[in-house]
C-alpha cells in the first residue's frame, strides 16, 4: 500500500478532536487482500488443469484469469450469461465462429490463437 499511496483516515488528536491523518496501511487488511489473490491464483490453476483435461473451454480459464464473473463477462462481450455458460463447454466452444471468438479475444485482451490453441 505505502509504495502506491498513503491513504487518508480520521483520527483523534490530543484534544479528542478528529483530524485528517495519513495511514501507511494496515496488516489486517493487507492479509485479507493477499488471501484473496492466493485464492484467485489457486482457482486459475485449477481451471487451467480442467481445460487441459478437456473438461471446460478456455473461456472459463480466461474469465478466471481476468478475475471476471459471468455478469462482468456478459458486460464486456454482450453475450447473455447462459450463452457464455454454453461456450464454456468444449464441444460448443470448438464450433464458435471467428466473429464470436474475436469478441472473447477482445474482452480478455488476448489473440484468437491464445483461445483456440490453449497451452495454459
Amino acid at each position: 500500500m505505502s509504495n502506491f499511496t498513503r491513504e487518508v483516515c480520521y483520527v483523534k488528536d490530543e484534544n479528542g478532536k478528529f483530524v485528517k491523518g495519513l495511514s501507511e496501511g494496515w496488516e489486517t487488511k493487507q492479509i485479507a487482500l493477499d488471501n484473496a489473490w492466493e485464492e484467485i491464483e489457486r482457482t486459475v490453476e485449477e481451471v487451467k488443469k480442467e481445460v487441459l483435461e478437456g473438461k471446460v473451454s478456455p473461456v472459463k480459464y480466461f474469465m478466471e484469469l481476468r478475475i471476471m464473473d459471468l455478469p462482468v463477462l456478459a458486460g464486456y462481450t454482450g453475450f447473455w450469461s447462459w450463452q457464455i455458460k454454453r461456450h464454456m463447454k468444449p464441444k460448443v466452444f470448438k464450433k464458435l465462429s471467428d466473429k464470436k471468438l474475436q469478441i472473447y479475444a477482445d474482452a480478455f485482451e488476448v489473440s484468437i490463437d491464445d483461445l483456440t490453441n490453449f497451452k495454459g
Binding site: M1, E7, V8, C9, Y10, S23, W26, T28, K29, I31, A32, L33, N35, A36, E39
Partner: peptide, 19 residues
C-alpha cells in the same frame, strides 16, 4: 468461510473508507 470473513474486512477497510 475464512475467505468470506476476509471479504467482509476488505469491504469494511478498503481504500476509501477512512477505516
Amino acid at each position: 468461510a475464512g475467505l468470506f470473513l476476509g471479504q467482509i474486512v476488505r469491504m469494511q477497510e478498503e481504500i476509501g473508507t477512512g477505516g
